[in-house]
Design a protein around this nucleic acid. Sequence first.
DNA 1: AAGATAATGATATCTCATTATCATCTACAG
DNA 2: CTGTAGATGATAATGAGATATCATTATCTT
Lengths: 130, 130
Amino acid sequence: MTDSPAPRPRDTAQRRAIRAAFAGTPRPLSPLEVLEGAQANLPGLGVATVYRTLKMLTEERWLVTVEIPGEPARYEIAGKPHHHHFHCRACGQVFEVEGCPRNIQTLTPTGFELEDHEIVLYGRCAACAA
Amino acid sequence: MTDSPAPRPRDTAQRRAIRAAFAGTPRPLSPLEVLEGAQANLPGLGVATVYRTLKMLTEERWLVTVEIPGEPARYEIAGKPHHHHFHCRACGQVFEVEGCPRNIQTLTPTGFELEDHEIVLYGRCAACAA
DNA sequence: AAGATAATGATATCTCATTATCATCTACAG
DNA sequence: CTGTAGATGATAATGAGATATCATTATCTT
């Protein structure tokens, strides 16, 4: 039962490229958006590595997942102030929106325990609305 | 180019059972919940028929879809007053919650066009919290 | 520099929810 | 009552996202 000796993550070009992709944008990114963004710096990057790295970065809390109804999960850098999201129906991108209505708790029915909430706005982003 | 003669939907036991399942609960139902609920009245009912009927009832606007992140779509009877949803992480059921914060529009960034919004609360329903 | 081993990438595979197929059944107009 | 076209159900097929496989490559300690 000798416990696992303690693995140590390595610093690789693909992990750097993936982190850079997040650092370079204020939007939550889908795995494929991460792939495209990181491939700009590292052409050979594969999908499997993206998924593996997203999982890893999420487990170590460098990323958090953003779930949008009917869409694959997005990821964004953890630790940002509380905010919500806007999903553009034209280009499919997800944007951050600041702020949050104060009275969310009051919506909760009696007896229910509120742990979390998500607000998703739908419409057209500035670029697509033009 | 004689246009399709005009099909007329038939009144079948399975369609009645599916509509009854919705009439019998205030919650949005997933296809499998519909299947189970309707099978209580009609044991032989199959999945394919549920999906076909949900699609049909949605197209004729008797139902609307409710999308919850990471979950299969739910359906609820159309025409209800504006409301949102609570997703119980313990039992997986989705519940309606009344009301809506007033200032949603103010969250929208300048230049963005808001068409719609969804609020999902996460936590434990009254039954599971006990 | 060299070895041990973690990481990668191409691709096969899995997991689901949903849809198509098709022989059989049934609602309903005539 | 009858015929027929719509409806059903068992099951195969599909599709998309995510994961597993495994030979090869690259990191990092010594």
